[in-house]
Design a binder for these strands. Structure first.
Length: 914
RNA sequence: GCCCGGGUGGCGGAAUUGGCAGACGCACGGGACUUAAAAUCCCGGGGCCGCAAGGCCGUGCGGGUUCGAUUCCCGCCCCGGGCACCA
C-alpha cells in the first residue's frame, strides 16, 4: 500500500472535526490547560510557529489520552502596527488585511493538523473581545490603577507613536522599525504596575522549578529592586532640600559632593543668581539635546558643572558643593545622588576629573585604605572609619544604624527603589482598542458608561501615517455629549498598547462567548491556571510580566472564584497565570551573503559576471558587466543573501540546476547560521513542506531535530529522514496486516520476550518524556529504536506473533502525539474501530520489564575489560565468581593482586588491582 | 563590568542518581537489486597503531576529589543571551 500523507491527513482532519474530539467543556474530569502564545496575523505561518504549536500539540494529544479534559485553544493577536502600515501603503483597510491574513493562517494551521478547539477562537480586533479591554480599563481607572499623567515619553518619529521603555532597544531604537527614538512630553494613560512590583518579584519564588531560570532572572533584573535610604541635604541659602537615594547609607560620612540630574527641577532654581548661572543653563540645555540613550548607557565621559551653591551634610554639618552632571538620571530614584568618591567608581572618576576631595570611610577588614593612594573606588563592604560614632561598625550594621539616626533627626528614612516604571498604554494609532474615556471641559475626565461599551473603532479614519492619532480626525467619533453634564465633550483619541490585549487573552479562552463579563468566574476557576504555556524567549519580560500583573489586578478586582481544591490553588491565590513555562528555541537556517560568497570565490564587486560564472561552474563565458553594476541594477547590497545575485537573469541563464543547489557547498563552508527572517531570505515556508512531505513529517522533524528549548538549524535532509521513517513504519504495518489483525497466544521465544521488554521499556520512556521532561527528541529516538527492533524480529512461535502485534500496536499509539494522522490511519488499518484520539494511553506492564539475565560491564582499574551476563538475582559472591572466570578479566588481572572488589548491583563491577 | 546558558564524532544531538561515552537521525563509505540512475534493502564507522586479536588516546584547557568523572570541586579559555553611569 502506498503511503500518501496528503490523503491521510485530509481524511483524519475531517474526521476529527466531524467528531468534535478537540472540543472541551467543563466536566467532572481533571482539566489540563495547554496554551501556545497566540500569533500576530502577519500573513503566513513561519517555522517558529510550527515548532511552538507542534510542542503544544504533542502535550495536548498526550494529556487527552492520559484522561485529562484538555483545553487547547488558538486565537489571534490581531491589533497592531503592521495592519495600519499596510493600509498606509496600499489603501487596504486594516480590518480587511487582518481578517484575510487570519483566514489564510488558519487554513495553514488546519493543514498541520493541530488539535485546537476552534470553537474558542478569539481575535483581539473584534469588538466582542476589545470591549472587555475597555471594561477592564474602566475598572482599573476606578481603582486608581490607571491614571493620567504628562510624562516624558519615547516618541518614535517614524511610527508616530509613543513607545514603552521596554519597546526601545539598548541602542535607543524603536523595537519595530529601528528608528532612533526621541523624547517628548505627552498626556498619556499609565497603569500602575509599580504598585505590584514587590508582589511580582516575590511570587517569582513560586515559579522556580516551573519556569526556566533565565526568564525568572530576567524578570528579577527588570523589576530591579534596591533597598537603601533616602537622605535629605538642606541648601540653607536657598531654603531648599535635596532628596537623594542611596543603597549605601554606611558611606554617608564619605560624601564630598551632591549631584542633581540636569532635568531636576532644583538644578536651575539653585543656580539662579549665582556666578555659575549661565554655565549651568548652557549645560542643562546641552544635555537636553543629547540623545537619551547615550546619556543612559554610560558611553559618554562624565561631565558636569558646579551649581554655585552648597548643601549641608545631615550628620556632620559640613558644607558640600552641589553639582549637576550627565551621569545622574532623572527617572531613577529621586534624580539626585550623594557622591562618595572613595567607594563608588562613577563618583571616583568624576571627583578626579573635577578635583573634588576623596574621603575614605570604609576599609577592608584588617587593612588600611588611604584616599590619596587610591586608583579606583573601594566598593566592597567593610569596616567604617572616619564616621563619627559609627566608626568601627561593619557595613551591614552601619547601614541600619545610620538610617535609624537619620530617621531620628528627621533627615532621612529607609527606602526601596525599583527599576520598573509604570506602563504607558496610550498609542497615537488607529488599529487598537479605543480608550473609553471622554474629556469634558467642565467635568474633566469622564469614563464611558459601562452600558455604552464597546466604544467601537470608526471605519473611516484617514490613515496617512502622519500626525497624531487618526481617530482625532473623525469628528463623529470625537465629538460626544458628556455623560455627566450633557455638554459638548471629546472622546480620547488614543488606542491601547497591544500588550494590553495579550495580557489576559488566556482568561477569555475559558469563556470566549461570555457577554456579561470578560470571563465566567466558574469557568476560569475550572480551567485556570494554565498548566503549560509555550512560547518564545523574546517574551521573557514584556508579555509575561504584564500577564502576571493583569492576573493579579483581576484577582484584586474580585473577578475570580477561588477553586475549592486542586494542586494549582496557590498559583490561583497569588494571581499567577502560568504554572509551567517552556521557552522554545529559535529555528535557524544557514545562508551566505553576497559579500561572503565573493570572498569565498576570490572575487570583488569589480570582477565581471563572466568571472563569477567561471568560479561557480567552470564555464567560460564572455560577460563583461561588473558584479557591482549588476547589483546596483537589481538593488542588491553586499549584506543580502547571495541567492538574489545568482537568481538574476544575467547569472541564472548560465547555471544548471536550482540556484539553491549551486550555493549549497559555499553555504556549508563560508555561510552563517541565523534566525529565519524575511530580510535574510533564509526562510523555509512550512506550507511548502507540508505540501511536499506532509504535516506529520514536518512536525516529526521539528520535534526530533533538537530538544524543544534549544535552537536548531533547519536542514532539508532532516525532514527527508523523518518522512522516510514514517513511510517505513507505514509500509511495514501494511505489509504485515494479517498477523497484526489476528489473535495470537502461546509461549514466547527468548527473542519474543526481548521484544516485549523493549516495547514496554519504550512505553515507559516515552510516557515519562511526554509527561515530565518534554525531551521529545529522545522520545522519538526511542520509538525509532523500537521500530528497528521490530523490523529485525523474526517470530518463531504463535506467542511471538502476539508480541509483534503488541509491539506494532503500541508503536502506533506512541507515534500518535508526534505524527497523529499517520498513527490514526494505521490504527484503523490494523483493525481498530474507535478513533486513536479517544484511546487511552497504554499501561506499562512491569512484569515484561523484568530480566532473567543482566549484562554487567566489568572494569579493571576503571577500564572496561569485559561484559558479563549474570542471573537477575545473583549475589555479590556469584557475580564476583562469574567476573573472575571471564578470560578477558583473567588476562587483565594476571600476576596482580586484587585490592578491592566493587559491585553496584545491576550496574557495574570494578576490580582494583596492584 | 555584572548575571544566566552552553562547549561531546563530519553534522544535529544522546548518556534521567558519579557507573559500558557517542543512543537515534543526517551526511559519508562499501555491498545487493537495476541495462543504468534514483529509490529501497543490508553492512561499516571517534582518533591513532595493527592483517587481525588487541592496545593506547579521547567529552574546550589545566588541576583536584573518587575504585570510577561528560556528570562533583577549584582555576582558566571560547561561544550565545540578558542587564548595565540604577545611585
Amino acid at each position: 500500500m502506498k503511503f500518501s500523507p496528503k490523503e491521510i491527513e485530509e481524511k483524519w482532519q475531517k474526521r476529527w472535526e466531524e467528531e468534535k474530539v478537540f472540543e472541551s467543556k467543563p466536566d467532572g474530569r481533571k482539566k489540563y490547560y495547554v496554551l501556545e502564545m497566540f500569533p500576530y496575523p502577519s500573513g503566513k505561518i513561519h517555522m517558529g510557529h510550527v515548532r511552538n504549536y507542534s510542542i503544544g500539540d504533542v502535550i495536548a494529544r498526550f494529556k487527552r489520552m492520559a484522561g485529562y479534559n484538555v483545553l487547547h485553544p488558538m486565537g489571534w493577536d490581531a491589533f497592531g502596527l503592521p495592519a495600519e502600515n499596510a493600509a498606509i501603503k496600499s489603501g487596504v483597510h486594516p480590518r480587511e488585511w487582518t481578517l484575510s491574513n487570519i483566514a489564510n493562517m488558519k487554513e495553514e494551521l488546519k493543514k498541520l493538523g493541530f488539535s485546537y478547539d476552534w470553537n474558542r477562537e478569539i481575535a483581539t480586533c473584534q469588538p466582542d473581545y476589545y470591549r472587555w479591554n475597555q471594561w477592564i480599563f474602566l475598572k482599573m481607572l476606578e481603582k486608581g490603577i490607571a491614571y493620567r499623567s504628562k510624562a516624558p515619553v519615547n516618541w518614535c518619529p517614524s511610527c508616530q507613536t509613543v513607545l514603552a521603555n521596554e519597546q526601545v532597544d539598548d541602542e535607543g531604537r524603536c523595537w519595530r522599525c529601528g528608528t532612533i527614538v526621541e523624547t517628548r512630553e505627552i498626556d498619556s494613560w499609565f497603569l500602575k504596575i509599580t504598585d505590584y512590583a514587590e508582589e511580582l518579584l516575590k511570587d517569582l519564588e513560586l515559579l522556580k522549578g516551573h519556569w526556566p531560570e533565565p526568564v525568572i532572572t530576567m524578570q528579577k533584573n527588570w523589576i530591579g529592586k534596591s533597598v537603601g535610604a533616602e537622605v535629605e541635604f538642606e541648601v540653607p541659602e536657598k531654603g531648599e532640600k535635596i532628596r537623594v537615594f542611596t543603597t549605601r547609607p554606611d558611606t554617608l560620612f564619605g560624601v564630598t559632593y551632591v549631584v542633581l540630574a540636569p532635568e531636576h527641577p532644583l538644578t536651575l532654581k539653585l543656580a539662579e543668581g549665582t556666578p555659575q548661572e549661565e554655565e549651568v543653563k548652557a549645560f542643562v540645555e546641552k544635555m537636553r539635546r543629547t540623545e537619551k540613550r547615550k546619556r543612559s548607557t554610560g558611553e559618554l565621559p562624565k561631565e558636569g558643572v558646579f551649581t554655585g551653591v552648597y548643601a549641608v551634610h545631615p550628620l556632620t554639618g559640613e558644607r558640600i558643593p552641589v553639582y549637576t552632571a550627565n551621569f545622574v538620571l532623572m527617572d531613577y530614584g529621586t534624580g539626585a545622588v550623594m557622591s562618595v568618591p572613595a567607594h563608588d567608581q562613577r563618583d571616583f572618576e568624576f571627583a578626579k576629573k573635577y578635583g573634588l576631595p576623596v574621603k575614605e570611610v570604609i576599609t577592608p577588614e584588617g587593612e588600611e585604605l588611604k584616599a590619596e593612594e587610591m586608583e579606583e573606588a573601594y566598593t566592597q563592604p567593610g569596616v567604617l572609619v572616619n564616621s563619627g560614632k559609627f566608626t568601627g561598625l561593619k557595613s551591614e550594621k552601619a547601614k541600619e544604624e545610620i538610617t535609624k539616626e537619620l530617621e531620628r533627626l528627621g533627615k532621612g528614612r529607609k527606602s526601596v527603589q525599583y527599576r520598573l516604571r509604570d506602563w504607558n498604554i496610550s498609542r497615537q494609532r488607529y488599529w487598537g482598542t479605543p480608550i473609553p474615556v471622554i474629556h469634558c471641559p467642565k467635568c474633566g475626565i469622564v469614563p464611558v458608561p459601562e452600558e455604552e461599551l464597546p466604544v467601537k473603532l470608526p471605519e473611516n479614519a484617514p490613515l496617512t501615517g502622519e500626525g497624531r492619532s487618526p481617530l482625532a480626525r473623525v469628528p463623529e467619533f470625537v465629538n460626544v455629549k458628556c455623560p455627566k453634564c450633557g455638554g459638548e465633550a471629546e472622546r480620547d483619541t488614543d488606542t491601547m498598547d497591544t500588550f494590553f490585549d495579550s495580557s489576559w487573552y488566556f482568561l477569555r479562552y475559558c469563556s470566549p462567548k461570555e457577554e456579561s463579563l470578560p470571563f465566567k468566574p466558574e469557568e476560569a476557576s475550572y480551567y485556570m491556571v494554565v498548566d503549560q504555556y509555550i512560547g518564545g524567549i523574546e517574551h521573557a519580560v514584556l508579555h509575561l510580566l504584564y500577564s502576571r500583573f493583569f492576573t493579579k489586578v483581576l484577582r484584586d478586582l474580585g473577578l475570580f472564584k477561588e477553586p475549592e481544591d486542586g494542586h494549582q490553588r496557590e498559583f490561583f491565590k497569588r494571581g499567577e497565570p502560568f504554572q509551567n513555562l517552556l521557552t522554545q528555541g529559535m529555528v535557524n537556517k544557514r545562508w551566505i551573503s553576497v559579500k561572503n560568497l565573493l570572498k569565498a570565490l576570490g572575487l570583488t564587486e569589480e570582477s565581471t559576471v563572466g568571472e563569477l560564472i567561471k568560479a561557480l561552474t567552470g564555464k567560460e563565458v564572455k560577460e563583461e558587466e561588473t558584479i557591482g553594476s549588476l547589483m546596483r541594477k537589481h538593488h542588491i547590497t553586499v549584506g543580502d543573501n547571495a541567492i538574489l545575485l545568482i537568481s538574476t537573469e544575467e547569472v541564472r541563464k548560465f547555471i544548471e540546476g536550482a540556484p539553491e543547489e549551486v550555493l549549497k557547498p559555499y553555504e556549508e563552508k563560508f555561510g552563517e547560521v541565523s534566525k529565519m527572517s524575511k530580510s535574510k531570505l533564509n526562510i523555509v515556508n512550512p506550507s511548502e513542506m507540508v505540501e511536499k512531505y506532509g504535516a506529520d513529517a514536518t512536525r516529526l522533524y521539528v520535534l526530533f531535530a533538537a530538544p524543544p528549548e534549544a535552537e536548531f538549524e533547519w536542514k532539508t535532509e532532516g525532514i527527508e529522514g523523518a518522512y522516510r521513517f514514517l513511510r517505513r513504519v507505514f509500509q511495514f504495518a501494511t505489509e504485515n496486516l494479517e498477523s497484526l489483525k489476528g489473535e495470537h497466544s502461546g509461549e514466547l521465544s527468548k527473542e519474543g520476550k526481548e521484544l516485549r521488554r523493549k516495547t514496554h521499556q519504550t512505553l515507559k520512556k516515552v510516557g515519562e518524556e511526554l509527561s515530565e521532561r518534554f525531551k521529545f527528541n529522545t522520545a522519538i529516538a526511542a520509538i525509532m529504536e523500537l521500530f528497528n527492533q521490530i523490523t529485525s524480529f523474526k517470530p518463531k512461535t504463535e506467542g511471538d506473533r502476539g508480541a509483534l502485534k503488541e509491539a506494532v500496536e503500541k508503536l502506533i499509539v506512541m507515534l500518535y502525539p508526534f505524527a497523529p494522522h499517520t498513527a490514526e490511519e494505521l490504527w484503523e488499518l490494523t483493525g481498530h474501530g474507535e478513533l486513536l484520539t479517544k484511546t487511552p494511553w497504554p499501561e506499562v506492564d512491569e512484569e515484561a520489564l523484568k530480566k532473567e539475565e543482566v549484562e554487567i560491564p566489568v572494569q579493571v582499574n576503571g577500564k572496561v575489560r569485559a561484559v558479563i551476563s549474570v542471573p537477575a538475582g545473583a549475589t555479590e559472591e556469584d557475580v564476583r565468581e562469574i567476573a573472575l572466570r571471564e578470560p578477558k578479566v583473567q588476562k587483565a588481572v594476571e600476576g596482580k593482586e586484587i585490592v578491592k572488589f566493587i559491585y553496584r548491583p545491576g550496574r557495574i563491577v570494578n576490580l582494583v588491582v596492584r
